[in-house]
Design a protein around this nucleic acid. Structure first.
Lengths: 342, 342
DNA sequence: TTGAAAGCGCTAACAA
DNA sequence: TTGTTAGCGCTTTCAA
């Protein structure tokens, strides 16, 4: 901790160049002679110099802070997301600031923007479902705050969004249901105001139709993506005269609610009822029966989003950014689904 | 967003005072005349001025950034913790930076300290179990970085720690087991290198002894707090000749593992086996059967920790800090425990 | 109780 | 390709 007081001036002196040159080296400016570059870099290493973020920020009006905006109700996978984002941030000298917000309150956008301004965040990553919020995106643009949205559909400039193809993933799920011989299928959608809900639903229904299976309208319920909502919808579905033999829920939370209700009603899963979800949240593999679901590679998506964001933020400066993995969701088959009983 | 450029100079001019005076107002210095104070505060409100954190930080070598240090393996309740901390941070103008770390890697402490220095964090909150790490605390002290630890025992200066009385909570649990008539009880502890594991175990065993119940040594297993570890221990316990009628695990994760194994072995919970955990994590109420457990008010603890930390950071400056609620853990009885079958 | 001036450590014009 | 000179917006000596 001794070396904390080393400043750009010290480096400049030691290297026998000007401050400005050191600054150029730090910022990877191309306008530095090979020799000077080497000399300066050597000194920097030797004295273990790292530039002061605040000073840098004050001078260049950047903060090296990235924000993570998400709805605080819907934060189950937030840990993985943070991990993914951090893996990139740490590498590139950015810090991650968390900002859960309450999308139900009317002034949440204003509140977000204020907070961003106060901390001068260089940019933000927005998680679903508020990543779909148009007003938020517009406000961000107005405030001149770069953002990257994580979403399931391509509703923004390529540079502003990381998408996972949930529609196709849902087809896999539908195939799985078909393979198992289910015909009397029910679906609990997410709120239809979300594009992702529509995507998932359409992907599922479309593929089912290709297999000549049509879900009765009464077997499609609009849920709210919560456990409680899953229970409510399940109760409705499972007390019908002709009960479905398989239920797909828009997410694992709701699927968990379905399993709960089925259990309470004495309906055996998967023997009498197949249930599946979406997300592969932490508990999907641990509940009993373990849940067939679709894994969303949310950690990778967050990493990718960070990369995109930092690229934008650094625009002119060149930054060597490693690209990271796949963002394709895929089916995971577990205990909660099985062949339709005959 | 218009008002972004307003600086302390503008305010000073408008109020007809010097920069320095405005600064005093901002920092709640007592050396300001009543009238001046009012005048300046009025202007500040009018023009919606808020001081620039970076400039402030650069000048005063503070960052208004607090760090949250936790082991990235053990991050299930991290969301609540963040919430609690943020509720306080936001109020007092601090931002929260997340820092998961890998306590298993040898240089994790160095890595932490580096990261703290780089971002000039004003202080950090350390979550269990690494809150118990002595070397980490020592390194923090050496680096002159204020910290507050969240823990289950009082092993540091009052100002540096927020404790929840887990020992007493465990007594409640023991009473519950006794009330249910269990005598053949097993316990899966956490790693015994953790003080919290010891606390919980001793609290439990002690109270049991008061009721003249002694757990056989073979019925006390040391787990690792993970789901998998819970399964492993459960397998051992449930395949013994005389199987326990009740199992308490050191946390919900392990309890979930126990439930899984019992289910696989065809042992009915709670009829044939009572199971309980500790933490009341997100899923404790949702698994089947729902889990009897002890709720740790982790959100409140985090809020309290933030308050303590900010108090330390601001030492001389007076800061109006609302105190927040209880940090007493308590028993929650759900489906997974019941009377010993006769 | 207040103010003037000198930085905090860096980047950004503008020259050279 | 490099250096000089100003600041960024605030806090902090030190005087008044």
């Amino acid at each position: 901790m001794q070396d904390k007081k080393i400043t750009i001036n010290d480096v400049a002196k030691l290297a026998g160049v000007s401050k400005r040159t050191v600054s150029r080296v730090i910022n990877r400016s191309p306008l530095v002679g090979e020799n000077t570059l080497k000399k300066v870099e050597k000194i920097i290493k030797e004295v273990n110099f790292s530039p002061d973020k605040q000073a840098r920020g004050l001078a260049s009006s950047r903060s090296y802070l990235l924000g993570l905006i998400y709805d605080h109700d819907d934060s189950l996978s937030i840990v993985q997301v943070q991990q993914g984002a951090l893996s990139v941030c740490a590498q590139l000298g950015y810090e991650l600031v968390v900002h859960p917000c309450k999308s139900k309150e009317t002034d949440f956008i204003e509140e977000c923007i204020n907070s961003i301004n106060r901390s001068k965040l260089d940019g933000v990553i927005i998680l679903p479902p508020i990543s779909e919020n148009k007003q938020l995106a517009a406000a961000l643009r107005a405030a001149n705050c770069p953002y990257v949205r994580i979403a399931s559909v391509d509703f923004d400039d390529k540079l502003n969004i990381v998408v996972s193809d949930e529609r196709t993933a849902m087809k896999e799920m539908a195939e799985h249901f078909v393979d198992l011989g289910h015909k009397n299928i029910a679906f609990i959608s997410g709120p239809l105001s979300y594009r992702s809900s529509i995507e998932r639903m359409e992907g599922f229904l479309f593929e089912l139709r290709s297999a000549n299976i049509e879900i009765a309208e009464s077997h499609i319920l609009e849920g709210e993506n919560s456990y409680e909502s899953g229970m409510k919808c399940a109760m409705e579905l499972l007390t019908k005269e002709t009960r479905p033999t398989a239920i797909l829920a828009n997410n694992d939370e709701m699927a968990t609610g379905v399993i709960r209700v089925a259990s309470d009603l004495g309906i055996k899963i998967p023997e009498e009822l197949s249930v599946a979800g979406f997300d592969d949240n932490i508990y999907a593999s641990r509940i009993i029966p373990s849940l067939t679901t679709i894994k969303r590679p949310i950690e990778n998506m967050a990493a990718l989003a960070s990369q995109k964001l930092i690229n934008k933020v650094q625009s002119e400066h060149s930054a060597p950014i490693k690209l990271c993995g796949e963002v394709k969701p895929h089916l995971i088959i577990r205990e909660s689904t099985t062949k339709k009983s005959t």
